[in-house]
């Protein structure tokens, strides 16, 4: 759908900026709720936060060209720690230039952008009933905004043995407030055990793993996040299965 603001706002942006004598940065204001501020210049980067209508940012006059469109480079100041960092708002979003900021262009340039990369490393653990738990390390790649796939390898432990587990995971995040997002994920994989009947009655040497979890993710900064989720796990072979409620925890670091 054609949105005139997509063309008009950047033009106004440039006109206003060229009329400002000093190197002061611009000030922009969001015109609707739910606008995402990304950690990098693409909607495939992890969002930093979701902001409401009326939120003001200092913005660089230079529009950044990303892989999937153009972005405003804005200064995000943490309300609590007052820590400054760089965020990116898609030019298609409804924002308006309301004047100039007390920050200068140089200040915005000096702040390094620690973008949560399109790919990241994730350490995850799943706690099951009967003292079973799984840990794994995975390579995670964002193929679309807030949608990722992950390849992981790890171990499943019970009271008597440890076994190799590996597989793939897909998941989605839904930023809903500030630095929090709601996530849902599915993991499919295999569990390779040295012998039969170890995991559950009639378990085989090769079993299949399905894990579904959903919960809350906190984006600690542009380059790290932690999550806590609840869900379920099934370990199955051709004829038999083991099912369990599951609590999952993960730490993620951008690469």
């Amino acid at each position: 759908m054609f949105r005139p603001q997509r063309i008009l706002t950047p033009i106004v942006f440039l006109i206003v900026f060229s009329s400002i004598p000093s190197q002061a940065a611009l000030k922009i204001e969001t015109l609707s709720d739910g606008i995402l501020v990304y950690s990098g210049p693409s909607r495939r980067f992890r969002p930093l936060m979701r902001v409401r209508k009326g939120r003001k940012f200092a913005a660089s006059s230079t529009i950044v060209q990303g892989k999937d469109g153009d972005f405003y480079r804005v200064l995000v100041v943490s309300a609590r720690s007052k820590r400054k960092r760089i965020g990116y708002i898609f030019v298609d979003e409804p924002v308006s230039i309301i004047g100039e900021s007390k920050e200068t262009e140089e200040e915005l340039t000096e702040i390094r952008s620690f973008a949560q990369a399109e790919s990241s490393l994730q350490l995850s653990t799943w706690f099951l009933k009967d003292s079973l738990y799984i840990w794994g390390v995975g390579y995670q790649k964002y193929f679309a905004p807030e949608f990722y796939t992950k390849a992981f390898i790890g171990q499943l432990f019970n009271k008597v043995s440890g076994s190799l587990t590996t597989g793939v995971e897909m998941g989605m995040d839904q930023s809903f407030s500030g630095q929090f997002s709601l996530f849902t994920s599915f993991a499919f994989g295999v569990v390779v055990v040295g012998q039969e009947d170890v995991l559950f009655p009639d378990s085989k040497e090769l079993n299949y793993l399905v894990v579904g979890t959903g919960g809350l993710r906190f984006h600690a900064d542009q380059y790290a996040s932690v999550s806590l989720g609840f869900g379920q796990t099934a370990i199955i072979n051709h004829n038999n299965s083991y099912t369990s409620p599951t609590v999952g925890f993960s730490v993620e670091v951008g690469l």
Partner: peptide, 9 residues
């Protein structure tokens, strides 16, 4: 259900 811009939870 939370209905967000690009999906729901």
């Amino acid at each position: 259900a939370f209905n967000m811009d690009q999906g729901s939870f």
